[in-house]
Each structure stands twice: as structure tokens, then as C-alpha cells.
Write a protein that binds this DNA or RNA. Sequence first.
DNA 1: GCAAAATACTATATCTAAGTAGCATTTAAA
DNA 2: TTTAAATGCTACTTAGATATAGTATTTTGC
Lengths: 137, 137
Amino acid sequence: MKLSNTSEYAIRILSFMARNPERKYAAKYLIEQLKISDKYLRRILTTLSKEGIITSSQGREGGYTFQKKIQDIFLSDIIDATEGMEKYLGCVLGFKECSDENPCAFHRQWVTTRAKIVHDFQETSLTDLNLNANIKF
Amino acid sequence: MKLSNTSEYAIRILSFMARNPERKYAAKYLIEQLKISDKYLRRILTTLSKEGIITSSQGREGGYTFQKKIQDIFLSDIIDATEGMEKYLGCVLGFKECSDENPCAFHRQWVTTRAKIVHDFQETSLTDLNLNANIKF
DNA sequence: GCAAAATACTATATCTAAGTAGCATTTAAA
DNA sequence: TTTAAATGCTACTTAGATATAGTATTTTGC
Ligand code: SF4
Ligand code: SF4
């Protein structure tokens, strides 16, 4: 019922970068602005880079830029890249998956709720978050 | 997005007990039936007892019985007793809570989704789960 | 009263996510 | 070509949830 810290950080970092999507961001600058531990932030950005969301350039004048348009980067992409979505499959109550023919009363409700959760994350892009000038980083 | 193991165990144990709600269950029996570690199960049941969901009786012939009618024990009660619900408040994306006047696009969607999540857990009782004879413990 | 059978408590061990440290590698300006 | 400034990799540490072990306490039948 809660995203991992790593996912939350990834979303915060990318949202911050989305304010100026064309620019190249150095880790050092992001660390200053977002107050995230040096190596932890770098690890997250390396992951996002390998997952195809951003591009990293090494060496002097290196940094991170978006690999895709920010309107095409959805929250579900970011969550997938950091913590994965597998654990949200199966029965949320922890039972061995029951037969679909005779589900409990909760099952019927939860099917639509889970669909709504997934839908929300799949439909919201970095552009949607960025519309709000009030976000506190 | 996932319940804690402890919550899942609590739900499994109570659902099992709900099959015969009047009977007194000894920990030893539940351990055999549900294949949960001795001390871990006992700890969970002690917690549920202190939280007013079940009653424990010590000593020889002791065990655990329901303190309330099973149709009045909702999933939200069990989750509250074991892991609490606090972590699900605040911004699910990990931002400092923004002003409600100018929320991001995700906020509007998530308000209704979260309400549906909470509603599902608050409306489903042990009786509802127990209606399904197919549940695998 | 005593022993058996049950729960309660406290301390310890294990596992995984979170966070930190140090060194290696890459790149381009000088 | 050297060197500064950036990212990448591997190992270690920390914290919290999960799980186990051992002992204490309670209750009842005898
Ligand atoms: S029927 Fe109920 S217990 Fe079974 S998998 Fe669905 S939600 Fe879980
Ligand atoms: S407006 Fe968006 S970022 Fe701010 S609290 Fe709501 S969901 Fe989170």
C-alpha cells in the first residue's frame, strides 16, 4: 500500500528534472537541490539509465538527460524500473490464489480497485505532475 | 501497495478460526493447521488479543476465542491492529504534502482510488471471506 | 499442593531494503 | 598528455521487518 523509498526518490528526482526537460543535470547539482545522499542518488539514476528512462553521459561535462519525452514517461514506468510490480499480483490477502469461479466477497471488489490503482499509475506522466507549481521538493 | 506479512498471517489465522467462530483454538492446533512458526503466531495472536479482536485465556485449557462477532470484524480492523494505517496517509508519491488548492493531476485521481482501497478493507468482514469454501490455507 | 498444558515476555538471530564509503573508469578542457 | 570533473562498480554498514529460542507466568485437573 506504499511505494518503496527508492521509487519515491526516483519520482522526485525525475519530476525535478522535468522542470527543464532539455537540460543536462549533473548528480552533484541534484544532490544539492534535493538533499539526497550522493551514492544513493547516483545508484538510482544509473538504474533509471539502464532501464531506458534517462541517458547518462560519463566524463567531464557528463550528466543525465531524458531519453524519452516527459509526456511519455509514466509513473508505472518509474515504479517498474525501481521496485517492480510483481509483488502486487497474487492475492492481496496472502492466500494461495483461489479459483476465479468462487471468489470471496473481497475479491470482486478488489479486482476493480487494483485496476484503478494500476490505471492511475499508468496514466500519469511526468508532465502531469509538473503542472503543479506547488510541489515541495 | 502490499500488506505486511504480519497482516497477511493475521488475516489467514482469523479467517481459519472464523470457520467455527464459537470454538476455542489453542495455538498448537493453529500452528499445525496453518504451518506458521510457533512463536511468531503466538506473538500475532497476543497482539490481536490486546487490540480487542480476540480474547486469550491462559493456563491449561487456555486458548483463543473471538471477542466480537465475526461479521463485525473487518479487514481494516485487523490491518490497524498489526501494521497500522498511518503510512498510507500523506502523498503516495513521497512529496511533502502539497496544497489542496493546486494539486497535481495525479492527486485528483488518487483521492478517489485511495478512498476505494480504504472502503474495500472497511466493508469486508471475516464473514465475507468465509463465504468462499475454496480458500486455500 | 503439584504437575501438566497452555499463553506471555524478553532476547536473539536472520533477511532485505536503505544508505554510505572508496576506488575505478570515462571524457574533455587546458 | 595531463588533469579535473564527471559517472560506474563493489563492498560495507545500518535499520526495520521477519522469525526463532528460551524462560516465565498462568490455570486447571489430579
Ligand atoms: S477469492 Fe479472496 S482470498 Fe481468494 S484470491 Fe481472491 S481475494 Fe484472495
Ligand atoms: S498534489 Fe500530487 S505531489 Fe502533491 S500531495 Fe497530491 S499527489 Fe502528491
